[in-house]
Design a protein around this nucleic acid. Structure first.
Length: 605
DNA sequence: GAGTTTGAAACT
DNA sequence: CAGTTTCAAACTC
């Protein structure tokens, strides 16, 4: 309670910026994934492990914390069984034997439980995409107890908005005997706020120190946070759990993003992770209702603006008390950038120790790429030299991000200087409670255009250079600007000229980029295809004629054979033979034309 | 790449 | 709150 009071004192001056945080995409789009336990083995790339920087995993006999990853569009590759997908219904906690029922909206304090029939000891958590309900990913996990029932949880991530509020908690002391009758043995999914299924947030319990991993997703400008919480001190988890009867659980594939967003989320056994969440900016907390119970984080699944007003109006740091009878947990709301920072070290170095501090922080493996390589929201590296990156001069700091791959000198904007960083954040908020609020927001009510929240103060640039924050944000100056000689208004001819020039330049850059890419591809292709051309008497070998077009045509032929075989219900062996024969014919044709080309072209072109 | 200009942030 | 200083990005050469 005392802590809450303190939080209240510091945050009470801050306006409710939650919506702004979300609008800016700086609040964690919370990735949810589920139910890790001592036997959990959501295996990501085996050579990676999150490095906990502050606290080791805590063994607890208390309520099991379920780890969730809400992802965007997903595919269902890596499913242990297609059957796991079919019965999945969003919005419910279901057992594998639970028949399909429509999603429903749950309210805080409400517990929806299903009675597990199966006590195989494995849980399956189906994770639905944020925006595409048509694709699901099921991540196999194991429950804490080897005897705990098999479950599937499908998170009702919304089709269009993906605003979800979910709480998933699971009893740690599930026994098979009780599993069939007790609600405490079932996972509980709560939708806070009691709104329609289109709007949710994600609530992650914090009863044990969760490990939060910040994930940057290619193609997404949102931050994702993955929570991985150690639930027991058992060391058997890393060996995969001897009592796990479902081998597929051991081999669950990383969650894959589909379409443009392809991301492999390495999911690591909780026990192998030695990471804790850096303390959130608790000085900015606000106690809504006091509670002596553990706190939880509330983080939105996406940044989308149409979020539940009753929750989104809460400022970061808000602590919510639970509804009576809903369990003994409070909730805290905070912006993701101040939640955590991730460190990943290869397992080959060490699983638990010797963090490689800054170099590896905030990098997660995304299909083999580090986030710095894969992120689609490139942030310019800062070059701060004197501010230690702890003042708003630093763009990274101002954006609530840790410095990563920057060129800064004497940087304190990292986990190694977390206390200084938190002090600096507090100082900034003391000076300006909305210091971290995006400067570019919606205008007044009724105004659809974006506008600078404070307005600019330009004097010499005419607000037509990037010195001007309005111009830089590609918005026009407004009445609240105090600029002099402003030319950044709708009818300004200078502005129009600049815009045209900028557009033309952008087109040129795109064209050049495309040309470079094509050229690079062609060179690469040429290098791989022509290397052996000098042998064999100076003539090109036939396979050097396998151009992309030829390869595609060949594939078409093979596919056609496959389809024919399928249509005529040929056995697989026959189908394979047909395809191989077709492949042989294709090769013969290529060789034949290659020979002709050699004959026809005396200069060996 | 070095030096200059600019305006926001920080300070007084 | 206004004036000044500091700072890092934008810009120019």
């Amino acid at each position: 309670a005392a802590e809450h009071k303190q939080l209240d004192a510091t945050q009470s001056t801050a306006e409710s910026d939650w919506n702004e945080w979300e609008r800016s995409g700086r609040v964690a789009s919370l990735a949810v994934c589920a139910a890790f336990s001592r036997y959990g083995n959501l295996n990501g790339p085996p050579h990676f492990s999150s490095q906990i920087t502050k606290k080791p995993p805590v063994s607890t006999a208390g309520p099991m914390i379920t780890k969730l990853i809400i992802t965007k569009a997903l595919n269902n590759k890596g499913l242990s069984s297609p059957a796991s997908v079919a019965p999945v219904v969003t919005g419910r906690v279901v057992t594998q034997s639970t028949p399909v029922t429509p999603p429903r909206t749950l309210t805080i304090g409400e517990t929806v439980s299903t009675v597990p029939q199966n006590t195989s000891g494995n849980s399956k958590v189906a994770i639905s995409p944020l925006k595409s309900p048509s694709k699901l990913t099921v991540v196999s996990v194991a429950s804490q107890s080897p005897n705990s029932p098999q479950k599937s949880v499908t998170l009702p991530l919304n089709v269009a908005l993906g605003q979800q509020i979910l709480t998933v908690q699971q009893s740690a002391t599930t026994s098979p005997a009780k599993a069939g009758t007790s609600q405490s043995t079932a996972q509980t999914v709560k939708t806070v706020g009691g709104v329609g299924p289109s709007q949710f947030k994600t609530i992650i319990p914090l009863t044990t120190p969760p490990n939060v991993q910040q994930i940057q997703v290619p193609g997404s400008r949102f931050h994702y946070v993955r929570l991985v919480t150690a639930t027991t001190g058992s060391t058997t988890a890393q060996s995969g759990g001897s009592t796990n009867t479902n081998p597929s659980i051991q081999s669950a594939k990383p969650v894959m993003m589909n379409a443009a967003v392809r991301m492999s989320v390495p999911i690591i056994p909780a026990q192998s992770i030695k990471q804790v969440v850096p303390k959130p900016l608790m000085s900015a907390a606000q106690v809504v209702t006091t509670s002596q119970t553990p706190q939880r984080l509330i983080m939105p699944a996406t940044h989308l603006p149409q979020i539940q007003p009753n929750l989104t109006s809460l400022p970061p740091g808000t602590v919510l008390a639970p509804a009576h009878g809903s369990g003994n947990m409070g909730y805290a709301v905070l912006p993701a950038p101040y939640v955590t920072q991730v460190r990943i070290v290869p397992l080959c170095f060490s699983t638990f120790s010797t963090a490689t501090p800054i170099q590896t922080q905030a990098r997660l493996s995304l299909n083999g790429l580090s986030t710095s390589e894969a992120t689609s929201r490139p942030r310019k590296p800062c070059n701060c030299t004197r501010s230690q990156c702890l003042k708003l001069y630093c763009d990274c700091f101002a954006n609530g991000e840790f410095c990563n791959n920057c060129n800064c000198v004497n940087c304190f904007n990292n986990l190694d200087h977390e206390s200084e960083r938190l002090k600096a954040i507090k100082a900034c908020l003391d000076r300006n409670p909305v210091a971290f609020k995006p400067k570019i927001g919606k205008g007044k009510q009724g105004e659809s255009d974006r506008r600078h929240s404070k307005g600019c103060n330009c004097k010499k640039s005419g607000c037509l250079k990037n010195y001007c924050e309005c111009y830089e944000a590609k918005i026009m100056c407004s009445s609240i600007c105090k600029c002099m000689g402003c030319k950044n208004f709708e009818e300004s001819p200078e502005r129009k000229t600049l815009m045209h020039l900028a557009d033309a330049a952008e087109v040129r850059v795109q064209q050049q980029t495309a040309a470079k890419t094509k050229l690079s591809s062609q060179i690469s292709d040429l290098l791989t295809r022509t290397t052996p051309a000098v042998i064999s008497g100076g003539g090109k070998l036939p396979y050097t004629f396998v151009t992309k077009e030829v390869a595609e045509a060949t594939c078409d032929c093979l596919l056609e054979q496959a389809e024919q075989a399928e249509l005529t219900n040929q056995p697989q062996a026959v189908a394979e033979r047909l395809i191989l024969e077709e492949f042989g014919r294709c090769l013969r044709r290529i060789i034949s034309f290659a020979g002709k080309a050699k004959t026809d072209c005396p200069i060996n072109c």
